Amino acid sequence: MSVETSPTLVPAGDEPEPGPVGPVRRQLFWIVPLALATIGLSVYLLLHHRWGADVAAILTLPVEVVGLVVGILIERGSTRIPTLRVPRGRRRVWRWAATAAALVLAGTATVWWFQREPDPRDFLSGVIRIGYTNEYAGWHATGGRPAHGMDVDVAYALARDFGFTIKWVPLGRLTNRMAALNGSWVDDQGQTESAVQLVISNFSMTPAKAETIDFAGPYFVDSQGYLSATPAHDISELPTTGRVCVLAGSTSSDALYQRGWSTLEKPSLDTCLSAFTQGTVQAVSGDRTTLAGFAWALGKDPATYIAFANGSEEYGIGLPNNRPRLCAAVSTTLDKFLTNEWERSFKENLKPIGLVPADVVKPGHTDTCQRPGPWNQD
C-alpha cells in the first residue's frame, strides 16, 4: 500500500538558494582568458606610450560603465542566467563592488577634467606673459620707442588672432627660457617669478629642448656665425691668437676646441659681447642674425666681420610641455604670418642691420606638432 505525500509548500520569498554552479574550473574557463587579454592589452599599450595612453583613456570610460551596469543588473537579479545570480548572502558584497566601480568612474572623470589640455583660446586670453631673453637689434629692441623687431611682430600677430594683451617678461640668461615655461623660476636678480605662457626670443628648436617643452614653428631659419675682431668670411679665418666666447653648454665650444681654438664660456650672449668690446676675446659665437645686430651697432659691416659656419638654427615659439592643441592653434597663426607678413617684417627689422633675404631661409610652413608625452602630463 503506497502512501501519497503532498508536495511541501514553501512560502513566497523563502525559495531555497541555488546550489553550486559547478567546479571552479568552469568559472575560470571565461575568467582566465579575460584576465590574460587585459594584461596583454595593458602591456601592449605601455610599450606604445606615444599613443597608448590615448587608447587607454578612450577604453576606460565605456569599460567602467559596462562593468557598473552589469554589476547593478546582477545584484538586482535581472539576469536569467543561473551562474550570474547572486545569492542573498553575497548581495551586500556586490553592492559594495558596484559602489567602488561608481567611485572609480567618478574619479577617472575628475582626473581627466583637471588633466586635460585647456582650450588654446582660453589659455591665450587676457594678459599674456611672453618671455624674451634680451634686447637684440632686429629681433626685440626698444631704443626709446615701443618694442619692435621680428620676434615682436610674431607676438603681435598672435595677439591679433587670439585677442590678448602682451606683457613682456625679460628672462635674462638663456636657461631661463625653458624654466619659465615649466613653472616658477628665478631671475638673474634672484627673484622668484611666475611662469610665462610663451617664449618668443629667436628660440632655437632642438630635440633636446623638445623633451621638456613644446615648440610651434619654425618661423625663421638662421645659421651659426662668429663675430670676429678682424675680417673673416668663414670659420677658418677666425683669429687663432686669442679666444672665442661661446655660450655655456653650446655645441660651439666642442667644435672650436677640435679646431685648436681657445674658448671662453659665458652664461649669455650679452656677457660674451661685453668681453668682445673689452678686448678679452677676439670672436663671439652665436646665431648670424643676432650677431649682425651687434656688429651693426659697433660699426662693423656684418658681411665683413661675421664668419659663417655650417648648420642651421630653426626659430620657434616656446610653449609649455604637452600642449598639442595649443601648438596647432599657434602654428596656424604662424603659417599666416609666413604667408602674409614675413617679407614685410624682414624688410623693416633685419634689412636695416645689413641682412638680405638671401642670407637666411624663409620656412614654407610650420612643422607638425609633437604628440604629448602621456606619462608626464602637466
Rank of each mutant, 00 (worst) to 15 (best):
S42C: 14
S6L: 10
A12P: 03
P20E: 11
R50K: 14
W30A: 13
V66F: 09
T79P: 02
V21E: 14
V63W: 07
I72W: 06
V65M: 10
V21T: 14
I81L: 10
P18M: 13
I58V: 15
R25P: 02
L9K: 10
T38R: 11
P23Y: 03
T8R: 05
L45K: 06
T8C: 00
L59H: 09
G71E: 03
G71S: 11
V43W: 06
G19W: 09
G19V: 11
P11I: 01
L9W: 08
D14P: 00
Y44V: 15
G67W: 03
V32Q: 08
S78H: 05
E17S: 13
E15R: 03
E17L: 09
P23H: 07
V10F: 01
D54K: 10
T8I: 11
P62C: 03
A37I: 15
P20R: 14
I72H: 00
W30G: 08
G40D: 12
A53V: 09
P18A: 12
L28S: 10
V10M: 00
P11R: 01
I72Q: 03
T79Q: 04
E17H: 07
A56C: 06
R76K: 04
L46P: 02
P18S: 13
G13F: 02
P7F: 00
V32D: 05
V32M: 10
E75L: 06
A35H: 12
L41C: 15
V55F: 10
G67T: 05
G40N: 11
A37K: 10
V65D: 13
P20K: 12
T60P: 04
H48E: 13
P7N: 01
L61Y: 09
S6P: 00
R76V: 00
V55C: 07
E64N: 10
T8N: 00
V63I: 14
I81W: 07
F29I: 08
E4F: 03
H48C: 04
G52N: 11
R25I: 12
V32W: 12
V24Q: 08
T79S: 14
E75V: 03
E15V: 06
L9P: 03
L47G: 13
G22Q: 07
L45F: 13
V10G: 00
V63F: 12
G13S: 01
G67I: 04
L9D: 02
L61N: 09
L61W: 13
V55S: 06
G40W: 08
P7V: 00
A12H: 05
